[in-house]
Design a binder for these strands. Structure first.
Length: 420
DNA sequence: TCTGGGGTCCTAGGACCC
DNA sequence: TCTGGGGTCCTAGGACCC
C-alpha cells in the first residue's frame, strides 16, 4: 500500500506562511526571470491561468488584487526540507519524489490501524510544524495513490484532504469521473490520442485490452494501465539513483548581443554546474554548451550547441569552464539577440583517475581536489559567490530579473521576521 | 520589451560486429 | 528474379514529470 503526500499550492503557500496579512488573498508565484505563472494559491486558481506569461496578464492581475512573487528557491528548498523531515519521521519507508511530494510505503502500518486516520495524523502534524497543508492519497499502486491524492485535493472539504482508495469499488467510481489527462504519466499528446480512440475517462482506459495499448503506445503507458488496475509496476525508490546529467541554464534579463557578456554567462553556468557535480561526488567527461534566441516574436530563430569529450573525467571547475567556453566559441554568431544559454555535463564517473591515457598530453592538475575543496567550503560557509572566477564577470548585467522576491525568512539572519 | 529550469525514460534508426 | 540472421552500441527526438 502506497501513500502520496503533497503540499497544496506549494510555492504560493511558502510565500504566505510568513505573511499572515495575505490570508484569503489570491497569490501567485512566477518562474525565473518573472516569466510565467507557475504556482497559484487556492484563491487565485479559479481565474489565473497556469503557465501563462506574466507580462500578458500583468494588468489583469493587478486589477484583481493578485499578489505576485518572483520565485524564491532558497525559501522553498528549506520549507521542503521541513516537510520531508516531518514525514520521514512518521512513516517507515519513503521516497522523496519532488520538492513537494513524497511517496510512502504503508505496508507496516496497514494491519494495525485505519489508513485514513493515519493520513489525517500525518496531515495535521505537517500543518502544525510548518503551516503548510498537504493532501494524502492512499492506494495499492503509485499511480492509484496519485489519483487518490488528486481526489483529496479536488474535494478537500468532503474528504478532509485524505482519500483511501484501496477499495476497488471506490477506484472505479473515481476513475469513471475523471478524464484520462488526470492520470500520472498521461500528458497532452497521449490524452489527445486516447480521446481520438474513444478512450475518454480513466475507467475506460483501465478497462482497455493491454495488447491494444502496447500496440499503439509504449511500455510506459502499458505500466500505467496495469497500475490503474491495481497491479504494482513501480516500486518505492527509497534511495535516489545517481544522476546521468547535470544542467545549468538561465534566461537573461533582456537580451545578450555581445560575446563578452555571453562568455561571462557561460562561465558562470559552467562553474555552477561543476559545483553541483562535486556535490554529487561525480566526475564527468562530457561537457556541452548551448545558446538560443527567443522562439517567440518575429526575429529569425538561432539555437545551437556544441560538446567536448575529455580524455580523463574531471570535477575541476577550471577544466569544465574552459571546455564550455571552447564550445561557446564554436556556436557563437554575432548579430543575434540571445535569450538563453546553458551548460550540460554528462558521462559521469565516480572517480577522476580513470585509465591514464598514453596519448593524453595534459598532465593531471596538481592539488585540484584541495583547491576545489577550498572553493566549495568558502562558498558554503560565507554564501554562494564569495569566491568566483574572473571569467564570470563582476557586474553581471544579464542576471535574471526577480523584481518581486520575498525575504529568505528561514535561511538568512538578515531576513528574519521582526515581531513588534 | 516581456514567454522557466531540471530531470527521466523509451524508441527508432544508423553504424558496426560476426 | 532472388543478396541472412542476430546482436550491440550510440544518438536524436519525443514524451512525460514537477
Amino acid at each position: 500500500m502506497f501513500a502520496l503526500c503533497d503540499v497544496n499550492a506549494f510555492y504560493a503557500s511558502c510565500e504566505t506562511v510568513f505573511r499572515p496579512d495575505l490570508k484569503g488573498r489570491p497569490v501567485v508565484v512566477l518562474s525565473n526571470n518573472d516569466g510565467c505563472v507557475i504556482a497559484r494559491s487556492a484563491e487565485a486558481k479559479p481565474f489565473v491561468k497556469m503557465g501563462e506569461p506574466y507580462f500578458k496578464q500583468k494588468d489583469f492581475l493587478r486589477h484583481h488584487g493578485v499578489v505576485c512573487f518572483s520565485s524564491n528557491y532558497e525559501l522553498y528548498a528549506d520549507m521542503s526540507n521541513r516537510v520531508m523531515t516531518t514525514l520521514e519521521e512518521m512513516v517507515p519507508r519513503c521516497e522523496i519524489y519532488s520538492i513537494d511530494e513524497l511517496f510512502c510505503d504503508l505496508t507496516g502500518v496497514r494491519h494495525c490501524r485505519d489508513l485514513t486516520e493515519f493520513g489525517r495524523e500525518i496531515r495535521s502534524t505537517v500543518l502544525q510544524r510548518t503551516h503548510l497543508t498537504i493532501g494524502v492519497g492512499i492506494a495499492q499502486t503509485k499511480t492509484l495513490a496519485k489519483l487518490a491524492n488528486h481526489a483529496a485535493k479536488r474535494w478537500q472539504k468532503q474528504t478532509g484532504g485524505v482519500v483511501d482508495l484501496s477499495s476497488v469499488e471506490r477506484q472505479r467510481k473515481l476513475m469513471a469521473a475523471l478524464p484520462v489527462s488526470e492520470v500520472w504519466g498521461i500528458g497532452r499528446r497521449i490524452s489527445k490520442k486516447l480521446e481520438e480512440m474513444g478512450i475518454k475517462n480513466v475507467l475506460q482506459l483501465a478497462d482497455t485490452d493491454i495488447r491494444f495499448i502496447r500496440k499503439h503506445f509504449s511500455v510506459v503507458l502499458e505500466r500505467t494501465v496495469r497500475e490503474l488496475r491495481g497491479e504494482a509496476c513501480l516500486e518505492l525508490e527509497e534511495f535516489a539513483p545517481v544522476k546521468h546529467e547535470i544542467i545549468c541554464s538561465r534566461s537573461f534579463d533582456g537580451r545578450i548581443t555581445e560575446y563578452e557578456e555571453m562568455r561571462q554567462a557561460v562561465c558562470s553556468y559552467a562553474s555552477r554546474a561543476a559545483e553541483k557535480l562535486r556535490g554529487d561526488h561525480q566526475y564527468c567527461r562530457f561537457i556541452s554548451a548551448f545558446v538560443k534566441t527567443s522562439p517567440f516574436g518575429p526575429e529569425p530563430y538561432y539555437g545551437n550547441s556544441a560538446s567536448i569529450k575529455l580524455l580523463t573525467p574531471t570535477q575541476d571547475s577550471r577544466d569544465i569552464i574552459s571546455a564550455a567556453i571552447r564550445c561557446l566559441d564554436v556556436i557563437w554568431k554575432d548579430g543575434h539577440r540571445y535569450q538563453k544559454a546553458g551548460v550540460m555535463l554528462g558521462d559521469f564517473y565516480s572517480q577522476g583517475i580513470a585509465q591514464l591515457n598514453l596519448f593524453d598530453e595534459n598532465a593531471p592538475r596538481k592539488n585540484s581536489q584541495k583547491l576545489m575543496d577550498v572553493l566549495d567550503r568558502l562558498n558554503a560557509e560565507d554564501g554562494r559567490g564569495t569566491l568566483y572566477f574572473a571569467g564570470q564577470g563582476i557586474q553581471q548585467q544579464w542576471q535574471m530579473k526577480r523584481e518581486m522576491l520575498s525575504p529568505c525568512y528561514t535561511t538568512r539572519y538578515a531576513d528574519l521576521l521582526r515581531v513588534k
